[in-house]
Amino acid sequence: MKARLRAGLAWLGILLIGIVVFFPIAWGVKTSLTAPLGLGGGSGLIHLQNYRYILSQPLFLLYVKNSVIVSLGAVLAAIPMAILGGYALARFDFPGKRLSVLLLVLPLLPAIAVLVPLIVYMRRVGLYNTLLAVILANVVFNTPFAVWMVRGFILSIPIEIEEAATIDGCSRLEALWQIDLPLAAPGMIAVGIFIFINSWNNYLYAFAFTTSPELAVLPQALLRFLGAWGTNYGGLTAAATLALLPPAALFLLSQRWFIMGMLAGTGK
């Protein structure tokens, strides 16, 4: 009896939170399915015009491509650095290790505060107005956290396994490659997804570091539906729904490891 009551209460809680969580999303999807210019019309039917329109725009696909390049680029650049750095912090003692806290603290400083000097800097090194600059900014502000997560995963792997391997003649790096990496794979996936989603949603870096229209990323493109000539909410929400699919798909496919990885990365 008591267990059932408890389950009932739990479901009630989930339901209430669920309503708050899903309502805005449902509202967005609903808006995307109403007819364009449907200011007064509320026939309640599902209209796919917005989606058809968005998908017929080569520009939209270009923005998707840019977002994919930026997000995947950030993940691919950050993960190796995070693995190396995280491994060093987890498995070695060395003078100055305490300073590594700075690694955690520095990137927590507000990115927006350093944006203006970073623009000047990017110009000077010739990276301004390239997707590389956007990738770099995402890497800079995500890698340190990734380092700490990787460190957590590696700490959760018993060092004995690694020691056994070294006795068998593996070097430390071989041990990292052959023992720790496969074991920490869920953690890598978690880190990768964390960086992917952060980069996918970021508006500020692309806004600050690029100027050419063909370098725009999705969040910038979405804002274009709010124009001076009336807001196209249907188009905006349809594009936003489509933009939600890649990260959501990635997430659904890998959520088990993601949660596992988060657990290991912050558990210690």
Partner: peptide
């Protein structure tokens, strides 16, 4: 003139 813009565009 954003081609993704509203019909007026």
């Amino acid at each position: 003139f954003d081609p993704l813009q509203s019909p007026a565009q």
